[in-house]
Design a protein around this nucleic acid. Sequence first.
DNA 1: CCGCAGCTCAGTGTATACATAGAAGCGGGA
DNA 2: TCCCGCTTCTATGTATACACTGAGCTGCGG
Lengths: 222, 222
Amino acid sequence: MRASDRAYRVLREEILDGVLAPGTALAEVEQANRLGVSRTPVREALARLEADGLATAASPRVLQVSELSPASITALYELREALEEQAARLAAMRRDPERFEGLRSRLRLSPGQLPSGDEGGLRDYYETVDALDAELDAAVANPLLIGALRNARLHSARVRRLARQHPERLRAAASEHLLIVEAIIAGDASLAAHATHVHLHMSLRHALASIEARQPDGHRVA
Amino acid sequence: MRASDRAYRVLREEILDGVLAPGTALAEVEQANRLGVSRTPVREALARLEADGLATAASPRVLQVSELSPASITALYELREALEEQAARLAAMRRDPERFEGLRSRLRLSPGQLPSGDEGGLRDYYETVDALDAELDAAVANPLLIGALRNARLHSARVRRLARQHPERLRAAASEHLLIVEAIIAGDASLAAHATHVHLHMSLRHALASIEARQPDGHRVA
DNA sequence: CCGCAGCTCAGTGTATACATAGAAGCGGGA
DNA sequence: TCCCGCTTCTATGTATACACTGAGCTGCGG
């Protein structure tokens, strides 16, 4: 694999996981030394991160890890609303019903598996959600829309790892996802879109509450 | 200005204008020689173009100017629907009404100025549309959404320059825009979104018809 | 003591040299 | 004549050298 790709993935993962906290300066030489490659691939990786919105140019010469504030999370959900409702609509219109049946089964089982509390159930659930995303992409069959969705998912993953996930919320999310999948299988575009809206609304509410609970003063998250 | 920025802008403009036709290979050395800079800034420019979706990696080593087919135009409009309806909704909710009044006046005058047929009226109209985009961005106040919108506008500009613009269509577009602006001033989010939907529908229909008329066999546009 | 000018230097922006891999063309053999 | 394999060569990927700008510090003058 190319060194620039590795640099990009490492940096991206570190930003998503919070290892590189918001506001951290991303200097070319420093990261090049740390990652054991030259400035050239690092430079390319940083450019990609900036294009993704995970890094922001604070001034012409300094690049920082993007802030993750309640405001920016709300903004993310406004974008997701636009993209995911459209995706759900189009998927319901274009899907091959059979391809979503496996997901329906898995989501029906999820509520029972999640309260177990072990790590396995949670990772399994996220794999199901990822599979749903993949099927949505396949059904939507719109490269531009998929590209925008992918970027939004990047930021979503960051929020997901910041917000503490309670089992009860995950169970609710699973049933929300189930409704979306059922609407898609039924070819009900309107229901798919509205169910997506509901899911995003609940998800945002939970994310904000979870972060607020963790950092009551709001100072540690700028 | 940085050489990489210049390279990016030149290449972008050439792609939008069709000087670099869809399918054209974008080789680093070739473009570097042509633009009079080294490979380094060209490399950065090409990476940005690929991130924009204006260039596509045909194989791991060859980058090409993206195709512009009826299918990809339809896909673009599906993305614009999602983004611009959301933007219109949010703008209607958050706008400072006074900032849109100038646009309203200009759009009311547009139909009378456009039939003149001269280049000035047309350029003036596009400036009005650009100003509308800028006011929308300001009102929406959502960096992520604005970023996605900007990218969609890039592709829209490409379609606009490909499709022949009849004065009658531009007059209709102006009145569609006027309705959107009036809805935003009135704070009517639902109307703003629906008016945007209508505008995009008419615009897509016109664009497809215009391209079909120009290239009946569909061979020159892959 | 404070403010400004000049300097130093760290870090980016660009150019270029080197490494490498993929593709195309050529030659030999069946 | 066709196919396979080798070679060569071109274009990308990476490293590094050089250029330059902007920020911060220091020292002088008021």
